[in-house]
Design a binder for these strands. Sequence first.
DNA 1: ACCTGAACACCGTTCAAGT
DNA 2: ACCTGAACACCGTTCAAGT
Lengths: 211, 211
Amino acid sequence: MQIMAAARLLIDRDGWQKLTMRRLAAEAGTAPTTLYHHVRDKEDLLTQLLNDYADQIPRPPLPADPRERIITAARAIHDSLAAWPWITEILTADDRAGEAAMWMVETIVAGAVDCGCTTEQAADLYRAIWYYTVGEILVRANAARRRGELDRPSHRDTLLSKLDPARFPHLAALADRWPALAARDTYAQGLRAFVDGLLANAHDDHPPRRA
Amino acid sequence: MQIMAAARLLIDRDGWQKLTMRRLAAEAGTAPTTLYHHVRDKEDLLTQLLNDYADQIPRPPLPADPRERIITAARAIHDSLAAWPWITEILTADDRAGEAAMWMVETIVAGAVDCGCTTEQAADLYRAIWYYTVGEILVRANAARRRGELDRPSHRDTLLSKLDPARFPHLAALADRWPALAARDTYAQGLRAFVDGLLANAHDDHPPRRA
DNA sequence: ACCTGAACACCGTTCAAGT
DNA sequence: ACCTGAACACCGTTCAAGT
């Protein structure tokens, strides 16, 4: 559909905050009111965009080891969302996450069960990983956007450099290295630690058949 | 300030999406243009609201054990943000997190260092916990808002109940229990697992002096 | 069927003018 | 100093009317 292509173009060029029905109509070469014959309202438009994108997320080959399957599935979703981070904002603001992402949920829950979790523990593990993934994408995407918009010195960085070393000894010592540290992509590393911790804690409550 | 009190009232009553300069002026009993003598613009207003709230977050007494200090600090921030979740949206969208939250960063970094982490590992640990915390609050707050707005059946839940059991065996089996499981507050449990996993992985790379 | 202009009920913000 | 009405440049959406 013509409209969806125009919407994708505008979002990539100007950011999704700048997408309005009127701008979209101008880009698509129609009247704003015409759009309402193709989508119910703006929310519906964004949902369709979300689902189209979700359907495109490639399913990676899954390793045999269940723990690695969990990590592979989470990383696949993370990397796809990170490539178009505004999608995540709709995903959390909106309910209609499509069936497209369900393979990831199933894969993670199945992996956790194969690691010896109960189904409840597996569901909790999935949710914990989802929270971590969403948070990482939102925080880092907004930080990146700000770096692009602002000229140079972020508020947080200047605040860090002026901290009282008596009250904040570790932060003051880290201040000049902080921007470089915060810019690193540590998602995968954190994910691995999280999965390890979640599985270990699950086994404490409910030891698996064979350790 | 009169204006800030009115803003808090409106946000609590109607949600922060509904807060507009014009509505706020009406509530405060002035003209919309008058607001601009007290705040630079709408973003400035939200930032002031954020900082006022952050200053109020109580600092809990910190236990002696460094791992428990990390968990206590993270939970204190989490619980405060969860009580007024829209704050988190501004916190991620906006850069100007005040000095008020810095004690939490310092406490977590210091706790990680006391657990044997290098400063880099401590900074990574803090960031990972922050991502998890932000994600948990945003996802759950939006889910709760939707439960309030929508009449009853969430899209996700109906989608879950119609899953093909052949392709999604675990999810299909969990479908009817999913809403109840997802409504549970598992933040603290996940936090503990995450901290355990992060510290264990850090020690693999860099074993602490005394284990 | 598909499209549209006019219109409605809103926004955030500026600025010259009032007390 | 503090406040304000008029105005500007926008929004999303509806609806009767056009082809």
